[in-house]
Amino acid sequence: SAAIRLKQVNPEFSIVVLEKGAEVGAHILSGAVVDPIGIDRLLPEWRQDADHPFKTEVKDDQFLLLGPAGSIRLPNFAMPPLMNNHGNYIVSLGNVCRWLATKAEELGVEIYPGFAAAEVLYNDEGAVIGVATGDMGIEKNGEPGPNYARGMALLGKYTLIGEGVRGSIAKQLIAKYELSKDREPQKFGIGIK
């Protein structure tokens, strides 16, 4: 979605997306309930696309208090407004990512599946100037094999890191720039559908 938006802002931008999975969405394992407001703003005509992944609209919300003896249904009116999912869609996030990738490519975004960013590249002043992909064809013993290929350096005016929760590149940046200093630790939650 970020690549799409950047191309919408300036179609002349050259935008490259590295995807560590074999295809876009391969590492997105979960489903989600999605409010379509973001898609409405990004791609206002998305509903006319027969291939869009937003097929199952939420029709009913039920909230249960679970305990050792069973469950008790909580009344919907007692729940905060953000728990009301009417008008939202139940989706596979992998399918959403694959669909967005086709939209990005239609705009001219270059997507390279199977290439993970392995390290951040810096200039002499310590500013981020790009990333490098990992070397390919390394044998189990760590030595280059017959299909060895050195990783690529991808340099850009801007580098957007969007690798998910505390990914390896994000950890490098957090450490280098002390981004977690004097900050609350990250919080995680588990949702069950």
Rank of each mutant, 00 (worst) to 15 (best):
G114S: 07
G156L: 04
Q62I: 07
W99E: 11
D40T: 10
E119G: 04
Y158Q: 10
P144C: 06
A170R: 08
D60E: 13
V17C: 12
Y158G: 03
N88E: 11
V16S: 09
K103I: 01
A116D: 08
E178F: 00
P68D: 03
L107E: 00
K103T: 09
L179R: 06
V34C: 10
I4A: 02
K187F: 01
S180A: 10
E12A: 15
N84W: 00
G67V: 07
E105S: 13
G151E: 07
L107T: 05
D135F: 13
D51A: 14
K181A: 12
T56S: 11
L100R: 03
D49Y: 07
S1C: 04
M152I: 15
R98A: 15
P185A: 01
K140E: 11
V24L: 03
A117D: 08
E19R: 07
P75L: 09
A32L: 03
D49N: 15
A104V: 12
K176M: 05
H86C: 01
P81A: 14
T159D: 03
G151M: 12
G162F: 03
G191K: 07
S180C: 11
Y89I: 13
Y122W: 06
D35T: 00
I28F: 00
I192N: 00
E45N: 14
I190F: 15
G94C: 06
K103C: 02
V96L: 10
L82Y: 04
A2R: 08
W46D: 02
T159V: 08
V16A: 11
V9E: 09
P75H: 09
E110Q: 14
P185V: 00
V33F: 08
H52M: 13
E45F: 10
L65G: 01
N141A: 08
L29Q: 09
A50T: 14
P185M: 00
A2Q: 12
I138W: 07
D35E: 04
G156V: 06
D135E: 03
A101F: 04
P68M: 05
Y158W: 02
P44V: 14
E106K: 15
E23G: 03
V128E: 11
M152R: 15
P81W: 00
G67D: 01
I37T: 12
I72N: 02
W99A: 03
P11V: 13
F77T: 12
T159H: 04
A153S: 15
Y89K: 06
A127E: 15
L42C: 10
S30D: 10
A26N: 02
P44N: 13
D135W: 05
I90S: 02
I161N: 11
E23Y: 08
P68S: 10
